[in-house]
Amino acid sequence: MFGTTIWIFRIANWLNWIGAVLFTLLLAALLLASEHFYPAITQAFEVRGQEAVRAVWTWLVSVCAIVVPAAICIHVIFTRLIALLRDAAIGQAFSEQNARRLKAVGWALLGVNILDLIFGQISVWASAASGEYFGWTFSLTGWFAVLLLFLLAKVFREGAAMREDLEGTV
């Protein structure tokens, strides 16, 4: 079970980086050849007027720019979880190091949540400016997950201390 999950996370992380590279290329194209994108934007989003097209373009650029820091956060989440699962597979889940890993996952998820908020703000603004609806809804789930991860890190720290005591008991 651990082995399969580790592989799923590994593949997910590769996809994460492939996505990040593709979005970076798109970002470069959007910035270097913006005038080529304007007709395509007019067609794809059915928006009229220079300002509306400009708003859609800005939204696209912002989304691409957000993807890179998000990919870094997601990389931290996946790599730490993989390391934690590897330890769990050999019965060494409760350690000080894994408590730190969970904390790192918590911080990374907080980063993702903040980026999601920024994305939401840009979407709301772009929707208003262009007349095209860029879907985004606020969700508390991610914020609760951050809290849960920090608490879980504390639990792991307690577990590590208990384990250490138990190992010294004869």
Partner: peptide, 22 residues
């Protein structure tokens, strides 16, 4: 019925606690 490793821990004073059963 205790492992030699555990008994060595006790002998060398590295044990943190000792069970009543031990």
């Amino acid at each position: 019925g205790l492992t030699l490793a555990n008994l060595s821990i006790l002998k060398t004073g590295k044990a943190k606690a000792i069970r009543f059963s031990t």
